[in-house]
Amino acid sequence: MKIGELARVTGTPVETIRYYEREGLLAAPPRTEGNFRIYDESHLERLSFIRHCRSLDMALDEVRILLRFKDAPAENCGDVNTLLDAHIGHVTARISELRALERQLKSLRERCNEARDAAHCGILNELSQRPPQGTAIEGGHVHGVHGGTPARNAEK
């Protein structure tokens, strides 16, 4: 199948498929005489595996490790368990950060209970104040909540 069909079948943008190839997660397929990539069932299965991992918010490095184990089925999977335990820990920490963000937003929302002129808006006035020391705010957002690398965000 050509890249467009693989993209359609897996719900993966063509650029993301090419990105996974460049990153070494997906083997470059053979090409036709007309220089078209031709993907087979193994590409479909591997891409589906990658997409499933990504849907669980696993980083590309985590996916890479899991693929190494998938490619070596006789290996002991203890490290897979360790990787997943660590990932669960990251998710738990992010949930905690998101709950803190929710509390901050609700507190901010309580600053303005009725529509009034913007000069007297409690939300705008509060946002004009410096954040208190020790908050999780860093770089304009709650640290860790809007995670991801530029490359990770580019593949979406």
Score class of each variant (00 low, 15 high):
F49P: 07
I50Y: 02
R51W: 00
H52I: 01
H52S: 10
R54E: 02
S55I: 01
L56S: 11
D57I: 03
A59W: 01
L60I: 15
D61T: 11
E62K: 07
E62A: 10
V63R: 04
V63K: 06
V63G: 05
V63L: 08
L66R: 10
L67W: 02
R68W: 02
A72C: 06
P73T: 01
P73D: 01
P73I: 04
P73C: 04
A74H: 14
A74F: 02
E75F: 03
N76G: 02
C77V: 13
G78R: 11
D79F: 01
D79H: 08
N81P: 00
N81I: 06
T82L: 14
T82V: 14
T82A: 15
T82C: 12
T82H: 11
L83S: 08
G89S: 08
A93H: 12
A93Q: 14
I95M: 15
S96K: 13
L98E: 12
R99D: 14
R99H: 13
R99I: 01
L101V: 02
L101D: 00
L101T: 10
L101A: 13
E102I: 01
E102Q: 11
E102N: 07
R103H: 13
L105N: 07
L105C: 05
K106P: 00
S107V: 00
S107E: 15
S107L: 08
L108F: 09
L108Y: 07
L108M: 09
L108G: 03
R109D: 08
R111N: 14
R111F: 01
R111C: 12
R111S: 09
N113P: 03
A115I: 14
A115V: 15
D117Y: 04
A118N: 06
H120E: 14
H120P: 00
H120A: 14
G122H: 07
I123V: 15
L124E: 03
L124W: 06
N125R: 15
N125C: 06
E126K: 09
E126G: 01
L127G: 05
